[in-house]
Each structure stands twice: as C-alpha cells, then as structure tokens.
Computed example of a mutant assay.
Amino acid sequence: MFALPLLMAAPPTAPVNPPVPRGYVAFKATTPPTIDGKLDDAVWAAAPWSEDFADIEGFDKPAPKYRTRMKMLWDDRALYIAAELVEPNVWATITEHDAVIFHDPDFEVFLDPDGDNHMYAELELNARNMTWDLLLTKPYKDGGTAVNAWEIRGLKTAVAVDGTLNDPRDTDRGWTVEIAWPWAGLKELTAAAVPPADGDHYRINFSRVEWDVDVKAGKVVKVPNRPEHNWVWSPQGVIDMHRPERWGEVQFSTKAAGPVAFRPDPARAVKDRLHDAYYAQHAYRARTGGYTAAADLLKLRPDPSGVPTLEATPRAFTASLKAPAAAGGKTWVLDQDARLRAE
C-alpha cells in the first residue's frame, strides 16, 4: 500500500464573510424585444433595473468607479437580458468570436439553472459585440474544464455605444447590451424545467471586467502590471466568479409587470452549511493528506442548520444535511467536487 502524502496542494479559498446573494424577479414579456442593443423597446419598461453592481469581494470594498446595472425578461422562447455600462471611454480591441473577451472591458453572464454547481454556462461580450460562450463542466477550483467549442444555440446579442468606440478624444456615456438566450440553448445543461414555470428559480450572476488605461499616441492602452477590476451584480466574497453557490437568483413570474415579491431559496442556509463543510474538508486534506468523516475535526462554526453528516475516504467525501420542513424537507448532499444534489 502506498502512503498518501501529508501535504496536498493549496485548498480552495473560502469566501470571506460573503454577502447574502441578491435576487431578481423576471416578468414575462408581452412581446419579445428587438435585439439591437438600444433598450428602447416599450416592453423593457416593465422590467425593473437591478441594484448597481458592486465589487466582487463584497460591499465593504470600494464601490465601482462607473455604474453598471441589468434587467431581465423572459417568454416561452428565451431569457432576455439588458445591461447598461457607464463608461467615459468606450474601447474594445478583440474582433474574434471565442477569444478571451475579458482581456477587453466586457459584460459577462453566468447561468446554472438547476443550481448543482456543475455543467453551467458563461457568456462574455465586449463593446464590439464579440462573444465568448463556454460550458464549464465544474468549477475551476474543482478541476473543471472550459468547453470552448460549445455554442449557445440560437443566441442573439447586440451592443449600442453611446459615444464613439476607440476614440479617446471625446467623452462617451457608455454602452448598452441586449441578449436573447434561447431556452433551447440550456436544455442540454440542466434537469431544471426549461422554459421555467411561474415561481421557478435559476442561479445566475453578472460581471463587468474593467481595466485601468492611459492614452498614448491617440490610442487606449492598459496601465501595465495592474489587475482588472471585477464588478458584479451579486458579490462573491472572493475574486472568483466560478463559485456558483455564491451567485444570485432569478425568480420567474408569469405576470407581465409587478409587484411580485422575491422569495429567496428556503434551503439556502442548509446549502451554505454544506459549503462550509466543503471548504473545511479541503483545508483538512491539505494538512493531513485525506478527508475525514469526523465532523468535530473540521471545527465548523456553530450554526442553527446543524452539523452535516460526513462520509469520507482519503480522496472523496460527501456531506449531507436535511432541510427543515419549512425549507422543503429534502436532504441535500455535497461532494468533494462541489456537486450539489437533493436526495
């Protein structure tokens, strides 16, 4: 028998005091918007704007320099997304589909309809309306890979620039985005109802990448050795968008307009508790070489949701916890790759 090494690779970093995920109620569109990037269709008036985006790490970080907000609608064919990005100097250099779009300033959508943390979608686009759509088998921290060859079937996107693209001589107002994401482009990812029913929830988040720039010889150039800014709708608590458990939620309503109250996931506390155990297990394995079935060794913080039941081998584990009847009464299970499921 070969002995396991005592020290493993650095464990996934747990979010620090992550905020409660945000929620949004998406109303059903009476007519589909025209996807031209301009947001002037009358149907958009029924959709409220989201809260302003915040720093990816949380509300205790400095507020973003420029405003970003989004809104959503849906019908039996597609999910519709609109976004407004205030920007005094709109620029974009990437001109190829499926390039690494966030090397430009961009707008990003992350979508996991069944909320299992695996098989989720990401879409990025820049101010030239160049897109990168990719499928994530599981989060990068869990060894997931990005399937760049995956394409969102029937996707339509458009961008409108309020100003002049790539001309730093004047002051722009920003750019707006419109997206029609057909349900047909999601069915292969999920066991959730597609299209959704009234009251259904999908896990979703939005991100804006912004770069510090200078103007040299009439062109915009990035300031060397500065990381990007990450401004998001629902803060993650860590600089990593690939933590689906920290995303916000969209609640679908068959009404054409509000008010409709957002109802947070009643099992959120149980799921968060399981993710506490997930991060503790990975930290334990990094110290000792294996996972444990002894919850007391993980030194979990006290929580009214209870102590998860653990099963473990040196290289795999499950953590399970039953939700109270008021939260659906299901037993939720999370494994070493962060896959979440109900039993």
Rank of each mutant, 00 (worst) to 15 (best):
A3C: 08
A10G: 08
T13K: 13
P15H: 02
N17I: 07
V20M: 11
K28Y: 03
T30I: 04
I35F: 03
G37S: 03
A42N: 07
V43R: 03
W49P: 01
F53R: 02
E57C: 11
K61W: 14
P62Y: 10
A63Q: 15
D76G: 15
L79F: 11
N89C: 09
A92F: 08
T93H: 07
D98I: 09
A99S: 15
H103F: 06
V109H: 01
E122T: 12
D133A: 14
L134Y: 08
G144K: 01
T145C: 06
V147I: 14
K156N: 05
A160D: 13
G163A: 08
T164K: 11
D167C: 07
D167T: 08
T171F: 06
W175R: 03
P182H: 06
D198P: 04
G199N: 04
I204H: 01
F206D: 00
S207F: 05
W211Q: 02
W211K: 10
V213I: 15
K219E: 11
K219Q: 12
V220S: 03
V221E: 11
K222F: 08
E228M: 12
N230T: 13
W231Q: 06
W233Q: 01
G237H: 04
V238M: 09
M241V: 11
R243G: 00
P244C: 09
F252Q: 01
S253E: 04
A256S: 15
V260R: 06
R268L: 07
R268N: 06
H275Q: 14
Y279P: 00
R285T: 01
Y291V: 01
L298I: 02
L298K: 07
K299N: 08
R301E: 12
R301K: 15
S305K: 09
E311R: 15
A319S: 04
S320P: 01
A325R: 09
A326F: 05
K330H: 10
Q336R: 07
D337V: 12
A342S: 15
